[in-house]
Design a protein around this nucleic acid. Sequence first.
RNA 1: GCCCUUGUAGUUCAAUGGAUAGAACGGGAGCCUUCUAAGCUCUUAAUGAAGGUUCGAUUCCUUCCGAGGGCACCA
Length: 566
Amino acid sequence: MLSVMKEKLEMVVVEALGALGIEAGVVVLERPADSSHGDYATNVALAYAKVAGISPRELAGKLVEKILETPTEEIKELEIAGPGFINFRLSDEYLAQALKDALEQGAQWGENKKLEGKKVIVEYTDPNPFKEFHIGHLMSNAIGESISRIVKASGAETRRACYQGDVGMHVAKTIWGIKKLSEGTPHLATLIQRLGIAYSLGATGYENNVEAKTEIIEINKKIYEHSDAQVDELYNNGLKVSLDYFETIYKKLGTKFDYYFFESKTGEFGKKVVLDNPAIFEQGEGGAIVYKGDEEKGLHTRVFINSEGLPTYEAKELGLAKIKYDTYPYDASIVITGNEVNAYFRVLLDAMAKVFPDLALKTIHISHGMLRLPTGKMSSRTGDVITAESLIADTKEKARTKISTELFSSDEQDELAEKIAIGAIKYSILRQASGKDIIFDFEQSLSFEGDSGPYLQYTYARTRSLLEKAGGKTIDALGVHTGTNMLHKRLLHFPEIVLRANEEREPHHIATYLIELAREFNSFYGNTIVLDGKEDEPYKLALVKAVSQTMKNGLSLLGISAPERM
RNA sequence: GCCCUUGUAGUUCAAUGGAUAGAACGGGAGCCUUCUAAGCUCUUAAUGAAGGUUCGAUUCCUUCCGAGGGCACCA
């Protein structure tokens, strides 16, 4: 495995430096962008030239000499280039063997053991019952699902959790809105739409109408107290409709949660935690209980229990951390949210460090940017939202027009269109670093060409088709071939990419890599005839098979399915 | 006003402090009698501004300009 190779080379370099009397903590071994600069390169000669008191190129020369004293069969040659880089070139024998090893690993290809023995819980998606499941939730879901898979591929035991806001002002607003809406008994989807409209109505009323605001606050208290039978009924029905509906979406997205947590529970418990720690949480204005963040550290004072005596987001999160731990004693708890809560989360972690110090250390907050429309920000308050369902449906229609009606039955067309649509949507989210906003343009973001999910799926389907055509022909990574091309080398980078995606918790590294690999393969495919019966056919088939496996494993890490045909 | 994030081709995104800044879309020119044209080949075009640190800066620091988010009872 190349990742092991990289570590091995790092050791070699450290030892060579040591032999020259230079103490090196960390050495950086990078993969040059330009393959003519070798398979790996290190800048240590430039970095330590000053310490050594000689020129970088001179130091590089001495290092190369040292390294070559104990020759290894993996390294073909070393060269000194540019201002003093040392470039390593790996031997063809080693590279061929590495490809063979990759094929033998099959579905495990790309995995590592960095998190072996660790328990990791990942919380994401977090839609609010009584509100729309919009494309922002799609963003959280895509990122969370992928991170869950990356963490698992790094050896951790992984659990998926979804945290849902079943109480709070948004619920009260919706219920107030439902009461204002005329009755009707439409089916599930329409009931969901009614909830969206009701929320919009309630939110507007709350802002613009004093009377409505008072009524909504009243309803909110009734929900907590269960003191009004009609409110309870509207609440119970609405909650069930929402949760059932969410399940249909999770299913489409390919997410299966292990645990569901609800704000009604975390709020109750969180409030207790706050009240039990008067030394940490103080009385604020109007009877609220607050946590005074350290202004020096840029932390604000935040309300944990409001003047109505109800827990806020912060208290709920505090309770959630402990409830999660009691449910599943994690080593790390990854929480994925939108970046608009970043400031609150920092205050929360500061408070948590005092109440549950061990849990605060284990909590990792990852925030994603907003999904913005070219026209501006979405708002469920004004009803200006794109729901996940409508986006999936529209994308599915677009995909359907490209599917052959001759090769696939209508059921198959439907299933395939959905896989492609979900792939396109997820890819459009995962292709960029997760902290940044996504400018979401239907035409541009959901392309089926070039830098897109369907391009990757198409590439996989091509490899499958080719392997099927090959039938029982010999596949041999050690077969006859001249040189080792970029496609071959790029294939072997996969485990390093997974390692990096895990370290940085950034799925987009995998997305970028897969696009590069797919481009490399499609170029190879376009310029080479694989099944030509010539002597290097077994080797070419090994490349195809490795691309196939890597594409499948990589797409899986992104949470995107890989159809066999399309 | 203060805090956080952010600024890369016309557009949407990449680039662990490294060597010639990489893709896609769009524009231009080609390729289906060979394994899937959701494809391939060629071409066009970018680091907001000014300083600083460094052998080397898209990356780190400072200032300015622009964008997004937050700044006590919504999440």
